[in-house]
């Protein structure tokens, strides 16, 4: 019997430990990205990512789902890729941040805006585009990510060359 009792407490301890870790892990998940967006540090890593997916992951740590509540306004054709006026509006509630990505730029993340309480989830800015590609807007609302994309045709690229 002693040989049987011996291993049990250990195993139980390990199991308990695993459960605790899992619980802490689960508890952290929904809050971690919110914290990342709320702190004031410049997201250096996210700006270094080359692809859009990697940049979204580095900035938010999760993926976005397309939503028709996010309205991205960009021209069909941009004659000058150095200055492309792009704006986003959304009817979503509890928006905490809005980010802009240009899929085939050398670094996909172009700009990220924090929207504190009382500020409207509406942003207009002007971005550079290297070539014809998708512009993606990500809206973080109530801890979730929503996206809208639009292809902009670029006649003259805006990233040198």
């Amino acid at each position: 019997m002693t040989t049987h009792i011996g291993p049990h407490p250990t195993r139980r301890l390990i199991l308990q430990g695993a459960v605790t870790v899992a619980l802490i892990g689960l508890g952290n998940l929904p809050y971690a990205p919110a914290r990342a967006a709320a702190n004031d540090k410049y997201p250096e890593e996210a700006f270094k990512q080359k692809s859009e997916a990697d940049a979204i992951k580095a900035l938010y740590g999760k993926t976005a789902e397309p939503s028709d509540k996010v309205k991205l306004d960009a021209p069909e054709i941009a004659e000058n890729g150095a200055v492309v006026p792009i704006s986003v509006t959304t009817t979503l509630d509890k928006v905490t941040s809005i980010s802009f990505f240009v899929a085939e730029n050398p670094n996909a993340l172009a700009a990220s805006y924090k929207i504190p309480d009382g500020t409207m989830p509406v942003v207009a800015n002007r971005l550079k585009m290297a070539k014809t590609t998708n512009v993606v807007a990500i809206v973080e609302a109530d801890g979730k990510l929503f996206s809208a994309a639009k292809e902009v045709k670029v006649t003259v690229g805006g990233c040198g060359g």
């Binding site: 997201p43 200055v83 172009a110 700009a111 990220s112 805006y113 002007r126 971005l127 990233c159």
Partner: peptide, 9 residues
């Protein structure tokens, strides 16, 4: 608050 990369015009 805006965090910008070099892709802003």
């Amino acid at each position: 608050v805006a965090d910008w990369g070099p892709a802003v015009s």
